[in-house]
Amino acid sequence: MTKTILLGVSGSISAYKAADLTSQLKKRGYTVHVIMTEAATRFITPLTLQVLSKNPVSLDVMEEKLADQINHIQLAQEADLFVLAPASANTIAHLAHGFSNNMLTATALALPSHTPKLFAPAMNTEMLNNPITQDNIKRLKEAGFTEISPKNSLLACGIKGRGALADIDTILETIEEILHA
């Protein structure tokens, strides 16, 4: 039976890497549904991820395509795994504090407790190291999310430090470990 992965993409310069992740997941035989924040659409178009996933990309929690389904609830119930990559500081904060003001956070909060949840932070080193962000990451872990740690690299802001999205291969390995455990 094909496993369904719900991929959340939030507003980070590394959002463009979601295209490669989506493509790799499809090549491995997974069904992929993508949810994007509005900020993510500034870095990569929903059409790109729709073409690669072969499924509509969900953007607006208030847009219900089917009258007999509540989209964010349906997506959450069908997911075998939730992956938030990249996970921006903003989206991590929203999830850590239970805000459901967009399609991505509403769906993540609607996930059944047994659904594995991964998040891969991607942000500036100072943002990542900020005690508020660290507290939010801790809260997500306490709520059952598993972190795929960011790597040290030259960041988009021009500094070298920890905060770059984990390599796609690392994210894929973590997904495979969880789904085939």
Rank of each mutant, 00 (worst) to 15 (best):
L59A: 14
A143T: 09
R28Q: 12
N102D: 12
R139I: 00
T170A: 11
N71Q: 14
L172E: 01
E147L: 03
N124P: 09
A76F: 14
I148P: 09
P56F: 03
H97Y: 05
T146D: 08
L6G: 04
E38D: 14
P150V: 04
L49Q: 08
T45A: 11
A181I: 14
A67K: 10
K65F: 08
L59H: 11
Q24F: 01
A89V: 10
M127L: 12
N55S: 15
T37E: 04
N130I: 03
V83F: 10
F119P: 02
Q24I: 01
K117D: 00
P112H: 04
S149P: 13
A85E: 11
Q134D: 08
N71C: 06
T91W: 05
I178F: 06
D68T: 11
L52V: 01
N101G: 13
L165I: 00
A15Y: 10
P112V: 03
Q69I: 10
A87M: 09
I73L: 15
Y30A: 00
L111K: 02
T115H: 03
K141L: 08
R139A: 02
K160Q: 14
S153I: 00
K141N: 15
N124C: 07
S153L: 03
I148G: 04
I5N: 06
M127Y: 07
A76K: 12
A15M: 09
K54A: 14
A108H: 00
T170F: 04
S153P: 02
T146N: 06
I159N: 06
E177P: 03
N101H: 11
S14D: 09
C157I: 01
A181Y: 13
H33D: 09
V83S: 13
P86K: 06
K17H: 07
T146E: 12
N129H: 14
A96E: 14
R162W: 08
T2G: 06
D80T: 10
H180D: 06
A85W: 07
K54Q: 15
G158E: 11
L75G: 09
R162G: 07
I178D: 04
A19E: 02
Q134R: 13
G158F: 15
T48V: 08
H114N: 13
A87G: 13
H97G: 02
K141S: 10
N136T: 04
I35T: 09
Y16C: 12
M123A: 06
N152G: 01
L154T: 15
A87P: 14
P150M: 05
L172G: 00
L81P: 08
H97I: 00
A85L: 08
T115F: 06
K65S: 10
L118R: 12
E126M: 07
K65W: 10
I137A: 07
A15P: 14
S10C: 05
T133Y: 08
Q69Y: 12
A93P: 02
S113P: 01
A19P: 05
S12N: 02
L154M: 15
T41S: 15
A19Y: 03
L104H: 02
L111V: 04
V83K: 12
V32K: 15
T22I: 14
E126S: 12
A39F: 00
K151Q: 11
A143Q: 15
F82P: 09
T37C: 01
G144L: 11
K17G: 10
A181P: 15
